[in-house]
Design a protein around this nucleic acid. Structure first.
Lengths: 278, 278
DNA sequence: TTGACAACTGACCAATTAGTCATTAGTATA
DNA sequence: TATACTAATGACTAATTGGTCAGTTGTCAA
């Protein structure tokens, strides 16, 4: 399975250099030193490759972020830690960053767009939870505007991380952003973003029972070596059509499959689905 | 020449829907109701089309902006007017916006990247000049950070303009951004962006004499109907190899060719070239 | 040495692409 | 009506694409 990782790394390099559409499978296999057939041994299609890349990066960064902003952290360092972690990751994984920040496919391919949109929603809800805790004395109506401010400043300054191989003082950068956000959180009065805007953005993907079942079947075909994951998927699929397991058991099964890289997105969708059903 | 505009409009629609790489010339001609051959009657290549699109939009918006931020405007409304004009244009021309904000070609094709980079530099220098005038009591070391803040806020909030057909209170939006920027301009103390960063970003394109001469020749072949522009180009080309005209005359010639859509970029490069020579 | 099995190869395929060019349609002038 | 001209056509090419699959290689255990 080490070759799968090799393909992912090399293809990411190429995508960062030339973009997704402009990089051919040929180029990828050449850089990896493998044949074209071998590529399709590890990925069903070029699409699946990009899916995996997104999932790997996003789940990785989200996992780190969740630790950094957990409840036991001192509340007035939440934002700093969040920005430091996000930008640090962006800097280290600049290939990913270049790829994500400029990739059209992410917005034009509907499936990928939804996936990205969702990860972005997770980001935003993390930021929102930070704002709620760290700037609790601010006017709650302004929370969303503060989130937009944070997003904007991160976007704007992150450009500096990606040009050249400039050594950036990450600490100073984060402090400078936090200072700005704090000023705005404490003193800004004009509210612009209202919750209805959010409902326009956060179109959470709602997979139907059938779509979800189909997705699981696909994954099952891809994964044959891991019995634990395979059986968990089977049970989850059955539960879709005939709910007979308690929510605790389902929770456990979801944790089982989440261990597998390829199942993370599915687990997320499953959770969303259950939440909607209730 | 009305068909040229038709192609530009329809292709822009398609690019906004599917992206540049994923839109074929076939699709464009189909939507226009013309043949493939006709397309190449008006554009030398698909590349030239995208060039024209960029130039048309950017020169249009820059022209509007220059009026709005001219010296005779009241200085404490400069930023408001700038943002209002920028976002208003973005909202009206949302096809352009969707296209530009998500297009990989703009970053991967070196030629286009340079072109875009340059327009961005013009934007930034407009913002910079606003900051200098409107926030003149702020610490000059912070000017660049303020520019970054403005950029970030515009980026972040402009997302709201592009989703759905939501009617946005543009006035409120602009006031909310201006309020935030003002707070930061007056009170922020941590400087992050230093002028050396800028030198990394602002790699102005420096066409050599030969490149420029070649570019002019290409344009001359494309334009045959307009004598004024054609002759001006010829004189400018001759002046390249054998400078014998005064700078005032050159200035006039540049104004002549600027009237033609296809020459604007060339005029800009010519000016840059002369500036470097001095 | 044999056979079984998985990992791997690369020639091949159908589809699609940007771009060309011999030909035609339409129109205005003589 | 004949001539001259431009505007427009669409079948064509050469190149490239994602993806397949019959066949080869290498590595085990028997």
């Amino acid at each position: 399975m080490v070759k799968r990782q090799l393909i992912m790394e090399k293809s990411l390099e190429l995508f960062a250099e030339n973009g997704f559409e402009s990089t051919s499978v040929q180029q990828i296999t050449e850089r990896c030193g493998i044949s074209k057939g071998a590529f399709y041994l590890y990925f069903k299609s070029k699409e699946e490759l990009i899916h995996s890349l997104i999932d790997q990066f996003m789940t990785g960064i989200l996992k780190e972020l969740e630790q950094v902003v957990s409840d036991d952290q001192p509340k007035d360092e939440l934002l700093y830690n969040f920005i430091y972690t996000s930008l640090g990751e962006l800097q280290q994984q600049s290939n990913y960053a270049k790829f994500f920040l400029t990739e059209q496919v992410l917005t034009f391919n509907k499936d990928l767009f939804q996936r990205m949109q969702n990860y972005m929603n997770m980001f935003n809800s993390i930021i929102f939870s930070i704002v709620k805790r760290q700037f609790d004395q601010a006017n709650p109506n302004m929370y969303l505007d503060i989130v937009f401010t944070i997003n904007g400043l991160i976007k704007s300054y992150s450009e500096l991380l990606l040009i050249g191989n400039y050594k950036v003082d990450l600490n100073l950068l984060c402090r400078s952003i936090v200072e700005k956000v704090t000023l705005i959180a404490e003193q800004a009065t004009i509210q612009f973003v209202t919750p209805d805007y959010l409902s326009h953005i956060n179109q959470t993907p709602t997979y139907s029972k059938e779509q979800l079942s189909e997705l699981i079947t696909t994954i099952q075909q891809e994964i044959q070596d891991d019995e634990l994951v395979g059986e968990s998927l089977q049970l989850l699929k059955e539960h879709l059509h005939e709910p007979k397991l308690s929510s605790v058991l389902i929770e456990g099964l979801l944790k089982n499959i989440k261990e597998n890289e390829q199942c993370k997105w599915c687990a997320y969708l499953y959770k969303k689905y259950l939440h909607k059903e209730k």
